[in-house]
Amino acid sequence: MTLRPIRLPSLDALLAFDAVARAGSFEAAAAELALTASAVAKRVAGLEERLDQPLFVRQPPRGLSLTPAGHEYLPQVRQALALLQAMPLHQRAGPRRERLRVSSTPTFARQLIVPALPGFTAAHPHIELELTLSVPLLAEGDAGADVEIRHGAVPDDIAADQVLLHDRLTPLASPALLARHAPLQTPADLLALPLLRTPLQPWAPWLAAAGLADTPEPDDGPRLVDLGLVLAAALASQGVALARLSLARHELAEGALVQPFALTVPAERHYGLVMHRPSPAAEAFANWLRNHCQGLDGAENSSGAR
């Protein structure tokens, strides 16, 4: 048995045939396809030649009408075109999104970046932000990150112009913990409570400012190598945290933590933004984060912190 050769028409010819069948004339189909009427007529004629079948009856001036073969062929063509149009790769893509990978210390990401992210997304819908976490003291940030939020000393770990926040430190405790002890009248009374410790933030600067410079660093309890863990322990009434006001502002506003003393001291280590791979997306994120942090600095300063 001899197989008949397959006579596949061009996609352009099939689209022209479908358009002419709907529009009823070469001129109307040409307007739809952004072609000339002559070009549409040639495509249809080429299709008829390949099929060896007339698909339209030319009836000037009344226009075109389908032949029996055309009536039979049209639903098959439309089904094939519908399948092609349904394929995701054939659909017109929207505006290309620019990916941006940001590495941040965990607490800064959870307390400062994530709550404000809807504002960044609304302002920059074309940027696909991927936020990863670094490990304080144990490792540097994500090597593949475009932008890194780093916690360190100035100018050893971060440059002065990279600083995002000029944080202030103060003791914070849960109301439940304070209720279990005698009322705190002076900073010295704080020494009767468990003081949470972390290598990221020693108590010495605040104790010195409070007139307690001879007090050694606390050495009881777990050593928490993450500022977020220190806040979590304070919220669980395990001890008093020496905390950054910027990181604990939500807990203070909700009353989950309270500030026993008005005394604050400037943080010796800072959060800084380091740009590893400059790009329009990285610049947009950096500008947004700087503005966000400036607002936090302003709110903290206006709250009477000293």
Rank of each mutant, 00 (worst) to 15 (best):
P260I: 01
Q59I: 09
A305Y: 06
I113R: 07
A267G: 11
A13N: 13
S279Y: 06
R197N: 12
A233R: 04
G298N: 07
V274I: 07
V57G: 15
A173I: 02
L231V: 10
A80D: 13
A284L: 07
Y73R: 15
L242E: 05
Q185H: 15
A281G: 06
A208N: 07
Q185I: 12
E48Y: 05
E300G: 10
D146W: 01
P202N: 06
G63H: 06
E128C: 04
A262V: 04
Y73F: 05
A109S: 09
L245C: 15
V40T: 06
V240H: 08
A173C: 02
L129Y: 00
P199M: 03
E27G: 12
E130T: 14
T186V: 08
A173Y: 01
R277F: 03
P260E: 01
G144K: 06
D226N: 12
L55Q: 09
F120Q: 09
S38Q: 13
A30T: 01
I113P: 08
A41M: 12
A122Q: 06
S279G: 10
I149Q: 11
A213M: 02
A13Q: 14
L164K: 08
Q201T: 06
L169H: 07
P68A: 08
D142Y: 02
V154H: 08
A34D: 15
Q259G: 09
L172I: 03
I158M: 04
Q59N: 11
T2M: 14
L200Q: 09
A31D: 11
I127S: 05
D156I: 10
L172T: 09
L169Y: 04
T2F: 13
R62I: 03
S134Q: 05
A122M: 05
V40S: 11
A29T: 02
R244P: 15
G152H: 07
L193I: 00
T215F: 03
D220N: 15
L245H: 08
P118D: 00
